[in-house]
């Protein structure tokens, strides 16, 4: 019995996703890529940085680049609030921060629960969407952090 259950779990693993809010929608990122969640603090702008870079923060002596997630997703800009957070993530062997409206919770999703949707996007940002999942009466948009940036952009970030 347990062997069968083990096989099922291997075939359909349960994944944990950290959810955050942006422009009244809920997005999810793989918990394995999230290092920590910080309250909003002053972000120092970097002269000459690409537009998608908000600036840098000092994280216990380490410099972390913060990405403008709204701009990246093609969403309008918004003021920071008490709920605004910087999610420190690791992608493409780099540690970066993404600015979000709020962090919601950690949800458990089976791989089989994740559905793909037709991608009718003309914009580059359309490829960030890994899939969608219906959870807690709302649709969760799962983001592929590896695709948040092109190879060139990841290299550019490293050079900041």
């Amino acid at each position: 019995m347990s062997a069968i259950a083990g096989n099922k779990a291997a075939e359909d693993p349960v994944l944990q996703w950290v959810t955050f809010r942006l422009e009244n929608e809920t997005y999810g990122i793989n918990v394995m890529q999230v290092q920590e969640v910080l309250r909003y603090s002053e972000i120092a702008p970097v002269p000459g940085a690409p537009p998608y870079v908000l600036g840098i923060i000092n994280l216990r002596g380490n410099v972390v680049t913060v990405i403008d997630t709204r701009l990246r997703f093609g969403l309008p800009t918004a003021e920071t609030t008490d709920q605004t957070r910087i999610v420190i993530i690791e992608a493409e062997n780099q540690v970066v921060g993404i600015l979000v409206d709020a962090v919601a919770e950690v949800v458990y999703l089976r791989q089989s629960e994740i559905e793909t949707t037709p991608n009718v996007g003309n914009e580059e940002s359309a490829k960030f969407i890994q899939g969608v999942c219906h959870k807690n009466d709302e649709l969760l948009i799962l983001v592929d952090l590896e695709k948040l940036m092109t190879d060139e952009e990841w290299t550019e970030l490293q050079g900041l």
């Binding site: 929608e25 997703f73 093609g74 969403l75 949707t117 991608n119 009718v120 996007g121 003309n122 914009e123 580059e124 940002s125 359309a126 490829k127 960030f128 969407i129 969608v132 709302e138 649709l139 948009i141």
Partner: peptide, 8 residues
């Protein structure tokens, strides 16, 4: 309807 960013 949940809008997806970057779509047509």
């Amino acid at each position: 309807v949940t809008p997806l960013f970057g779509q047509a």
